[in-house]
């Protein structure tokens, strides 16, 4: 690692079964891009990768391997030559890979054949800085200058690419599909009308825990609820009425009222939005998104 940039982390598909003692799920903010990177290399779907947020990362290959880059276009170059995302390529020993700054999207995924060889903590190497768990050091540290990340050396093989039809446009207006939750009826009809007809901006205070949105305040007749477990993609409404969408590193339990949850695949698209980007909401039925998610899981060979 020559330069890790502001936020580059080891992520596998997440830490499961530990929420009851308070450890969050973790894992890739954009599951779609992450899973494509592993698929391009014929890796197991959960194989560990580097999640590069904002760019600024520079690394040198010490061993040859097939690699893949998906997700955001961070103006990557391989030995100074532009490297478009969404395909696999051969990384020879001595090659330099550089990620500049965001051009489209926010998070890029760098996978290598066979996955990064990082020891799991509580069943996963997903990095959660706040919980001081996972990552290369096992202590939740982000990647640092001088780190050597173990890979399985590999022969050259046929490069693969993702068909353009499967590549999302991270610049377009994002419509977040909301599955109404059981507290939905505590929000006045007028508030809901305004919520669904308004556009919300992504706040600067958005991170791997949650995306804070700025826009028409959402009123709720509930001031707080007895704290309960929180799903991925939950839309919670704190007292100031500004929605927060809970993401991969969310707290496991919370007491703000919730409108419901956004479709899990939409949460991944939200993760590619920079502060200042615009989103809006529309309602969706649970059956519709469950079917979509089942197909997605089957396509990528995911059981969960």
């Amino acid at each position: 690692m020559i330069n890790p940039g502001p936020l580059s982390q080891i992520q596998d598909f997440g830490r499961y079964g530990q929420q009851r003692i308070g450890y969050t799920q973790g894992g890739p903010m954009d599951e779609h891009a992450f899973l494509w990177a592993n698929r391009l290399l014929d890796n197991a779907p959960e194989a560990a990768q580097i999640e590069i947020t904002y760019g600024g990362l520079q690394l040198r290959a010490l061993d040859a391997t097939m690699a893949a880059v998906t997700g955001a276009d961070l103006g990557a170059t391989l030995n100074g030559i532009p490297l478009a995302p969404w395909h696999s390529f051969y990384l020879a020993a001595g090659d330099t890979l550089l990620f500049n700054f965001p051009r489209k999207g926010l998070r890029s995924y760098l996978a290598v054949k066979g996955g990064l060889q990082v020891s799991p903590r509580l069943g996963s190497c997903a990095t959660v800085m706040r919980e001081k768990i996972g990552g290369l050091d096992g202590q939740g540290g982000k990647l640092r200058q001088g780190d050597r990340i173990p890979c399985l050396g590999q022969e050259k093989s046929q490069p693969m690419r993702v068909r353009p039809a499967y590549i999302p446009d991270y610049d377009k207006l994002l419509i977040l599909r909301l599955i109404a939750g059981y507290q939905y009826h505590h929000f006045p009809a007028e508030t809901l009308r305004r919520f669904f007809s308004s556009r919300y901006g992504v706040s600067q205070q958005s991170d791997r825990m949650g995306y804070r949105l700025i826009g028409a305040p959402v009123e709720c007749s509930l001031k707080g609820i007895v704290s309960e477990g929180i799903s991925y993609g939950a839309v919670q409404i704190p007292g100031d009425g500004q929605p927060i969408v809970l993401m991969k590193d969310r707290q496991t339990i919370g007491g703000y009222p919730k409108l419901g949850c956004i479709a899990s695949l939409d949460a991944g698209q939200l993760a590619q939005r920079m502060p200042g980007a615009t989103v809006c909401f529309r309602r969706v039925g649970l059956d519709e998104v469950s079917e979509e998610r089942s197909q997605f899981n089957r396509f990528f060979g995911l059981i969960c």
């Binding site: 079964g17 477990g229 929180i230 496991t252 649970l286 059981i303």
Partner: peptide, 22 residues
């Protein structure tokens, strides 16, 4: 199941969609 989160008066459960539907 992948996770269970007990709380005061509720139990939040995450399940494997590939093994069972909601």
């Amino acid at each position: 199941l992948t996770d269970m989160v007990p709380s005061y008066n509720s139990l939040h459960i995450t399940f494997c969609l590939g093994r069972v539907c909601g």
